[in-house]
Nucleic acid binder design. Structure first.
Length: 508
DNA sequence: TTCCGACAGTGGGGTCGCAAT
DNA sequence: ATTGCGACCCCACTATCGGAA
């Protein structure tokens, strides 16, 4: 199959707003692809590369050769070139990679170039990723979507599942089963504003667990072989030897557990997230990193134990199996209750001890991997501040032509100026985007045609955020974590905004 | 007919490792 | 030694479609 066929369908999908229409278009193409190229087609049309990443991003694609007039490249040829690009490393690799990228784009028509550019930068923007592609695979193969979804849960990679469905049907899908050593898509959580609200959504008794501010891990053990995977299913075994040792020490040699690794201080309180993340990302001298910043592990779920798959069991039963197999010290602190007051107290205690909050879990739901079902609900405390908009950036994609991303500042009483604490684009409705584009152009202090539009510091905005962290980037040495807009404060002047001192008081 | 679950899109701060400067 | 870049750790929120109620 030619790349142009895929690029054309992608553009059609992007033009079609109906989800069913997108699915039809994708399914029609999947009906025409050969087995050998099916994984490539499925990957490209759900915005992925079979190579996962190839070391080419936005910056490496700045100037591209002229397009060809006639499309000739096959999917196989493109895939082979991308593999060669990925394989390049060592001195001079940048130049070699540039040359191969140029070769790739020189072989493409302008329509193909545009597709490749968006694919490589991860911004396909056709309104269809894995979720829609699952439906398309189902339609093209005739298999029920639920079967495709289940196979995807167990295999973790849609192109392989799609190929099996297209060329082996339901039987091939059913042949996928959980396999020790191959990661399963992790179960994700929704969020709620309070424990009471979360309990209400679940209805009746629920399990509450501390939400530790660390890195999610899924660990597999088969005999003495232990493998750890991150949330995106990358193999991080070498970075977390403490976890490997803890799992080897268990008296079970066939298991898959779900949990969190986190760096704790000697007094047992959690280190800032940055410390844990830095430790987990360190690969060059793990032994030294380990001496300086040891990791602890806490498990909260079991997907497989003693050769039995537990995915389909209710949460309460999976946890019972986990608690049987793992020492208390390795279990995430947990409370089972239906009482909102007891739940709120458990939440308050978790936060008092420095943790992120709690996750409220239904005792009934199976391990619904990869979907943000209502089985798990996270609850975190929320801070708010009234800050001043110092500048704003033009948006992209569906926000093109709108001023979108706000630069936020706190008042500095000592200088009379403002100290930038970060940016946010979250929480804005279309109506608000419309309004702020007009308003901020009025407040513009200098040219409005660049990427960033500087403003007179007059507009106050109420911002919610999860916490304050140390920042090497911003002048105050602090930045807000997960800031989002709640509302504009038309009743407040900039002189009444919150100060850097009130922000500093929130530093851990 | 209305409601709501799932999805996609739009980006945020921070860190590491590598290659180039 | 420093800088630029890609990748990936954490992530919140709104708009939209289409099936459920």
């Amino acid at each position: 199959m030619l790349l142009i066929d895929v690029a054309r369908v992608s553009e059609e999908v992007a033009r079609t707003s109906s989800r069913l229409g997108k699915i039809r278009l994708l399914a029609e193409l999947l009906g025409r692809v050969e087995a050998a190229e099916s994984e490539i087609a499925i990957a490209y049309l759900s915005g992925e590369l079979p190579q996962r990443q190839v070391g080419v991003g936005y910056r490496s694609l700045a100037d591209l050769p002229d397009p060809k007039q006639v499309a000739t490249m096959t999917l196989t040829e493109v895939d082979a070139l991308l593999s060669r690009i990925k394989a390049l490393s060592g001195a001079g690799s940048q130049a070699g990679r540039r040359a191969l990228v140029a070769e790739l784009f020189a072989g493409a028509t302008s329509q193909e170039q545009s597709f490749l550019l968006r694919l490589l930068t991860g911004e396909l923007r056709q309104g269809a990723l894995n979720g829609v592609m699952v439906e398309a695979v189902a339609q093209a193969s005739g298999a029920p979507a639920a079967e495709v979804r289940r196979a995807l849960t167990l295999r973790g990679w849609l192109p392989a599942v799609g190929r099996a469905a297209l060329f082996g049907g339901v039987e091939a899908l059913r042949a996928f089963r959980i396999e020790v050593g191959r990661p399963v898509s992790p179960m994700l959580a929704q969020s709620a504003p309070s424990v009471t609200a979360a309990l209400e959504r679940i209805g009746g008794e629920a399990a509450l667990e501390w939400k530790l501010d660390g890195v999610r891990v899924q660990v597999h053990r088969s005999g003495e072989a232990v493998t750890a995977f991150s949330r995106t299913l990358d193999d991080i075994t070498a970075q977390v030897p403490e976890l490997v040792e803890a799992v080897r020490a268990l008296p079970y040699d066939d298991l898959i557990l779900d949990g969190e690794v986190i760096a704790l201080r000697p007094d047992g309180r959690p280190q800032p997230f940055q410390v844990t993340a830095s430790r987990v990302a360190s690969r060059t001298d793990v032994e030294r990193a380990r001496r300086e910043t040891p990791l602890s592990v806490f498990f909260f779920d079991a997907l497989r134990l003693c050769g039995a798959d537990l995915l389909d069991l209710p949460g309460a039963e999976r946890h019972a199996a986990l608690a049987d197999a793992v020492p208390e010290a390795l279990l995430t602190p947990r409370l089972v209750t239906a009482d909102p007051a007891a739940g709120e107290e458990f939440f308050t205690e978790a936060v008092r001890r420095g943790h992120e909050g709690v996750v409220v879990k239904s005792p009934h739901t199976p391990y619904t991997a990869g979907r943000r079902g209502a089985g798990w609900i996270k609850v975190k405390p929320r801070h708010t501040l009234d800050l001043v908009v110092l500048a704003v950036e033009w948006g992209s994609g569906r926000r093109r032509g709108k001023l979108s991303n706000l630069h936020l500042g706190a008042r500095d009483p000592r200088t009379g100026g403002f100290v930038m604490l970060g940016k946010t684009f979250k929480g804005l409705t279309d109506e608000l985007l419309e309004w702020q584009t007009r308003r901020f152009l009025e407040l513009a202090d200098g040219p409005a045609d660049g990427w960033v539009v500087r403003m007179r510091p007059e507009q106050v905005v109420e911002v919610a955020f999860d916490g304050v962290q140390r920042s090497p980037r911003y002048p105050g040495g602090m930045a807000l974590r997960f800031a989002r807009v709640l509302r504009y404060r038309h009743d407040k002047r900039a002189e009444e905004a919150d100060t850097v001192d009130s922000v500093r008081a929130l530093m851990p």
